[in-house]
Amino acid sequence: MMSQVFLSVALALVMLIFLTLVRALGGPTVLDRIVGVNMIGTKTTVLLLLIGLIYENMPMFIDIALAYAFLNFIATIGACKYFRRSKRVHLEDDLAIEKEASA
């Protein structure tokens, strides 16, 4: 009975990840995308733990989830540090500048 609960929760999480992907793909600024990717990472951490429960292999998947949580945090911080230096975060600006350059 519990494995069915875990399976349905995991399926719900996957659907939410797809919804978040909309923001991560279409967000107006690069920073919106970073927020979206960060949220997907949090959900994936929980999803990994659920997969571990479903396949009854917790000791392996807990390490993967832990590493994924660390990596997600570091990637977010690194991306923020990188985009702090760039002046343009709107993709439309980039496209406009490219058009000007090619014209």
Binding site: L31, I34, N38, I77, C80
Partner: peptide, 10 residues
């Protein structure tokens, strides 16, 4: 911390 970093960058 991640939220804070993103806000500051923005």
């Amino acid at each position: 911390t991640a939220t804070h970093a993103i806000t500051k960058a923005a």
